[in-house]
Nucleic acid binder design. Structure first.
Lengths: 136, 136
DNA sequence: GTATCTGCAAAAACTTTGCAATGTA
DNA sequence: TACATTGCAAAGTTTTTGCAGATAC
């Protein structure tokens, strides 16, 4: 990972990034810390918070809002503009990038006079695995 | 307000609802409490939390995620399905209901195997007033 | 009159900050 | 070696809970 942006590559940061990258789910700071500690006892929750702030600033991770905690993070897999489809059972996230909101955005701008800067779009649903689990 | 759903209509609840209904902005529990206290000193923050939980359960208010705090509430003006366009300067919210995501939703369902249950869509932008304020 | 609500105070959860010690580059 | 980064502990916030007294119906 290209952390040569002036920041040092420490064990802690590597560990946090590793946990986030490994997970297909979105994780809260607490959950991330728990997982980090498994392999690296002694790493403080504080470092997790600090690392998350850093990664968020750099745009390497992003938040998930649908389904509970708004401070759940996720690796920004496609690095550019994209959205999430979140499983309401297991939390598993699938990314997609073609949202095609241009028309709506344009009409809204005209109707309201707002100068639109961006949007937040997330879908909630049940992933194939969780659906299958229902029909035991 | 039709609170005859088995719940009692108390001064506190009326006050909280009043503040939310009055505001065109989205407010955090703390902000709501501050405003409630102005007219009704002695009302506890606890009651605000409890009332918010109640109103949220009943679907009378909804959250705003764009721009900071994810626990900002807003009166559910059009009572059905709708979305928000939030001013990134003053927080003022405009509602709209035609989001036209059916196609995208269908394609996502096919591509991913998810059974889609719902979506969260919010736009961020600058409202006419705030835009005007820039060109002093 | 009674079951629902409220406020207080205290607890629990979550997040940020100060500082000496540590580890990367 | 030097300075960014860490962990601890402590302080701030935010949210929840227990309980006795108040109040809507």
């Amino acid at each position: 990972m290209l952390r040569r942006r002036g920041y040092r590559l420490t064990t802690q940061r590597r560990a946090v990034l590793d946990v986030i990258a490994r997970s297909r789910d979105h994780l809260t700071p607490g959950e991330i810390h728990q997982q980090v500690v498994r392999r690296h006892p002694g790493v403080g929750l504080v470092s997790v918070y600090r690392t998350l702030a850093l990664l968020a600033d750099m745009g390497l991770i992003c938040e998930v809002h649908v389904g509970g905690n708004c401070r759940s993070y996720l690796l920004r897999r496609p690095l550019g503009h994209h959205h999430h489809l979140v499983c309401s059972d297991c939390g598993r996230v699938v990314d997609f990038s073609d949202c095609d909101l241009g028309q709506l955005e344009k009409r809204l701008a005209e109707d309201t006079g707002y100068e639109i800067e961006g949007h937040l779009l997330e879908f909630a649903g049940r992933c194939p695995d969780c659906r299958a689990a229902t029909f035991t």
